[in-house]
Amino acid sequence: MSEVIEITVYRLDELSDAARDKARVWYREGGFDDDWYDAVYEDFQRVAEILGLDLKTRPVRLMGGGTRQDPCIWFRGFSSQGDGACFESWYSYRKHAPRRIREYAPQDTELHRIADALQAIQCRNFYQLRADASHRGHYYHEYCMAISVERDSPTAQDMTVDAEETIIEALRDLARWLYRQLEREYDYLSSDDVVDEAIIANGYTFTEAGQRFG
Rank of each mutant, 00 (worst) to 15 (best):
152 D>E: 13
131 A>N: 05
104 Y>A: 13
117 A>G: 06
86 C>V: 01
127 Y>L: 07
98 P>D: 04
112 H>M: 11
131 A>P: 03
63 M>N: 11
119 Q>D: 14
151 R>P: 03
156 A>K: 00
159 M>S: 14
104 Y>G: 02
102 R>W: 02
62 L>W: 06
116 D>N: 10
163 A>D: 09
135 H>M: 12
106 P>F: 14
76 R>L: 11
147 I>P: 03
113 R>Y: 09
133 A>Q: 05
148 S>E: 11
125 N>S: 01
104 Y>Q: 08
146 A>W: 08
139 Y>K: 12
82 G>L: 07
151 R>Q: 12
73 I>A: 03
80 S>T: 00
150 E>A: 13
124 R>T: 10
73 I>L: 12
115 A>Q: 07
107 Q>N: 11
143 Y>W: 15
106 P>S: 10
112 H>R: 02
97 A>N: 01
154 P>T: 05
161 V>I: 11
78 F>D: 04
115 A>W: 03
77 G>T: 02
139 Y>R: 15
163 A>N: 07
74 W>K: 12
99 R>G: 08
151 R>D: 05
132 D>G: 06
100 R>V: 00
123 C>Y: 09
117 A>C: 08
155 T>V: 15
164 E>C: 06
120 A>P: 03
137 G>D: 08
83 D>F: 01
130 R>V: 15
75 F>Q: 09
141 H>D: 09
131 A>R: 02
90 W>A: 09
